[in-house]
Amino acid sequence: MNTIDLGKSGLKSAPIVFGGNVFGWTLNEKESFKMLDELLELGFTTIDTADVYSRWANGVPHGTSERIIGKWMKERKVRDQITLITKGGSSLHAKGPKDNSKDYLTGAVKDSLARLQTDYIDLYLTHYDDEETPVEEALAAYKAFIDRKEIKHIGASNFSAERLQKALDTAEEKNLPAYEVFQPEYNLMVRDKFEGEILKLCEENNMGVINYFSLASGFLTGKYRTEADFEGQSRKMFVEQYLNDRGKEVLKGLDEVSEKHNISQAGVALAWLIQRPGISAPIASATKSSHLKSFKEAVETSLSQEDMEVLNKASEK
């Protein structure tokens, strides 16, 4: 499988990053191992996780996703084949404060390394901005790990353009490591959080961009078209916000392009992201082997300018 560059970081990635939030949540350990084996076989070797994943699952402790990935890499002896991404700085409690202080992040990175059973993390992201902590605190914490080669590269997620710019400026002024990859929420239903200032800033600084919620929590698969479709589903709280006139227009556009190329709606939604300006690789999850078909479709399908325009117009506000 062809790889793409994550900006100027030097990191290579598969064209789609697998979202490891499902490990320990909707997939148990055995199911997670099966999914990871299939991903590796298909060539999707970039995995995104975080220290807090699984914290909201019933009775499942935080860090379970990292533990599963770490155990799998060790048992399969495949660490060198994986581009590993994890994150820290988000509270381990569902509604707790964000914390990007040097002491907190230092502990978070050490804990992630232990759970992942690895000597290094390819890309470590500040999960959320903590506006009460100077941006240089996080960068100083990462510098120590980078100097020891325990972190190869750093990035940020969910920052405003102003705070991201400040972090980049501070890194240059104080000779600290700079964020090289950005992770925003971005998909056909949520475009304004990335398009505009953030996109411009990422392009000006040649930052890699790996967006999350690529399929809008499943809405862009076309599975949810009426309220009855998501009643009793765990994703109801995420999906119901999209079931409006704009959402229906987007589904109509996906249906049109999907039928033209004879691929799934999910495949079209991912292909659209792959071809969007500024995007390096979208993040997507799967809970069944059959779901991975859309990954292959997206990578193998080239949408025409006309296809892109159909989707762009349908998803405009």
Rank of each mutant, 00 (worst) to 15 (best):
Y120C: 14
V78F: 08
G96R: 06
L11V: 00
E227I: 15
G20F: 05
L84D: 04
A298F: 05
T226M: 09
K293G: 08
S32G: 12
S32W: 09
S32Y: 05
I210V: 14
E259V: 08
V257H: 07
F18V: 14
K166I: 11
S285R: 14
V17I: 13
S91Y: 03
G43K: 13
R276F: 12
W72E: 02
L168T: 06
L251W: 01
K166N: 10
R55K: 15
L36F: 11
L199H: 14
D37K: 11
K98W: 00
V135K: 02
L39E: 02
A14H: 05
I69C: 10
R235Y: 12
D255M: 10
G7E: 07
S157F: 01
K293H: 10
G10T: 03
I210R: 04
N262S: 13
N175S: 15
N158C: 04
E173V: 03
D255W: 06
T170L: 00
Y242G: 00
Y212W: 15
E162R: 08
S91L: 05
L11F: 01
D51E: 14
A271S: 08
V209L: 01
I69N: 11
K313E: 02
I4C: 13
A140R: 12
K77W: 06
R76C: 05
E195I: 14
H62P: 10
F219L: 02
E297V: 11
K288G: 04
P177Y: 00
D122Y: 04
L199W: 12
T64L: 13
R67S: 15
H93V: 11
S264I: 06
A266S: 10
P177D: 00
G43V: 14
H291P: 08
M1Y: 13
T86P: 00
G278Y: 00
T133S: 05
T64E: 15
K149G: 07
S285E: 07
W56R: 12
E203C: 14
F230N: 03
K149Q: 14
A266V: 05
N244I: 12
E180N: 06
S315P: 05
Q275T: 13
E136W: 04
S160C: 01
K102L: 08
D119P: 11
R225I: 07
Q265T: 12
A156T: 08
W56G: 08
K313I: 02
I68W: 15
E259R: 11
S157H: 00
E162F: 09
K313Y: 04
L292M: 13
D37R: 08
V135E: 09
N312V: 10
I47K: 12
W272A: 06
